[in-house]
Design a protein around this nucleic acid. Sequence first.
DNA 1: AATAATGAGTTGCATTTGAAACCTATATAT
DNA 2: ATATATAGGTTTCAAATGCAACTCATTATT
Lengths: 250, 250
Amino acid sequence: MKMSERHTKILDLLTKEEKIEVAKLSNIFRVSQVTIRKDLDQLENKGLIMREHGFATLNSKDDINNRLAYNYDIKQKIAQLASEDVHDGETLMIESGSCCALLALQIAQTKKDITIITNSAFIADYVRKIPQTKIILLGGEYQNESQVSVGPIVKKCVETFYVDKFFIGTDGFSEVSGFTGNDYMRSETVRDMAKQAKQVIVVTDSSKFNQIGVVNLLPTQNITSVVTDNNIPNCCESYLIEQGITVKKI
Amino acid sequence: MKMSERHTKILDLLTKEEKIEVAKLSNIFRVSQVTIRKDLDQLENKGLIMREHGFATLNSKDDINNRLAYNYDIKQKIAQLASEDVHDGETLMIESGSCCALLALQIAQTKKDITIITNSAFIADYVRKIPQTKIILLGGEYQNESQVSVGPIVKKCVETFYVDKFFIGTDGFSEVSGFTGNDYMRSETVRDMAKQAKQVIVVTDSSKFNQIGVVNLLPTQNITSVVTDNNIPNCCESYLIEQGITVKKI
DNA sequence: AATAATGAGTTGCATTTGAAACCTATATAT
DNA sequence: ATATATAGGTTTCAAATGCAACTCATTATT
């Protein structure tokens, strides 16, 4: 088993078990404890897990980080693919969500002179160590768990801008309601932001296509393209393409 | 020597040395390593230091945290004193800075139904775990090191509000220029915010009264009161009182 | 085709760690 | 006045850690 594969499985295990001992992991994968420790160190450096004496836990206090660990490698590849459309010197908008956070970091690391406009203080913090990345943080009512600003102030702030690309996540999808979310205020804020962008690009792992959120986020016709993995259900994919949406898969 | 005193000295030592071994601290204070470890655990829980195998370092990557550790106990007392004027249900504005961060936390922990308006994403993150604290995060150009929003967007955001109290830090003071700062954009933003508050309260440890910042922050006549420690130079204190400013000392 | 460089793992050891049991002075309650 | 928490501290010890030195493939380089 390759190392990256083991890393993925460790994250999977942690999503289920909350906490695993080094010794236990060492037995499961039949490698030395030293090897496991190195794995955990690397995952910790990526901000995915937290280490303690003898065991590791998910960085799960934090909503986004939790979702970051879940399907991490797929999300990383989606972020990679989505970032290919962004060119040096561009100004873009990014909303909250795990894929979006990875995308923001990917862009900040690989492109030059990027300006990121976001309502996510998490993302602002996530990319601030990367030099020469300019961030516009949109203000508003601060949601304590998600670290996202929402509400009328965000609207007021974002109306100052008009950009080419706006990257968003989603909590679900259905043909009738389009893309859906799980938080009313956040969904409204996404719609406000979407008005200030030419293209709206959904970046999400394919699991969301089997779910439906509780509130409307954006109807299909407002979406320019979707970046996801190749487990997207065929019906969804063909429907999206019918609607004139570009579907990119890793 | 009391525990709190030892904690203070550990922070002092760390400000000088960057990194100290548990064994060394144990020798210096003539207490067991277990005791030192407990001390370090507590300081780590407060977010002041970082622990590693065998030693501790300041959480100094982060500008504000660094300053947080420096004179921590005095700053904590200043925050405590300043928070006494705030009552349940109040909406207030707080700017960035180490005393301000401690103040925000103190208020969030001890008062009910508080709304904090701030341009500091650091402070928003610092208090978000405290339940029932509402935060309005002001957006703008994000300063990557200080995690503060500045510029015209902040001005636009903050004009929505008018509050009774606005708490600020300072980088220096002189009779001729009044309170001074070290960053042009941030100082301008502070002035923008100050217009939306009845009272402007400076919270700062007394060391700043022996320094002068490079740009004007706010003239003396715009300040309502100053909360500091009792090492404020006599001349500064009497001058401030002459100008009709309330001076509170711990 | 031979050689060097690199990445992934292992073993071994001295050092550090967390946890539990224990000590002791100072409040707090009865 | 006496019992009882409680906070700060110590000792002890098995378990976990970092580090260095060593394999063993795989990938580049010449």
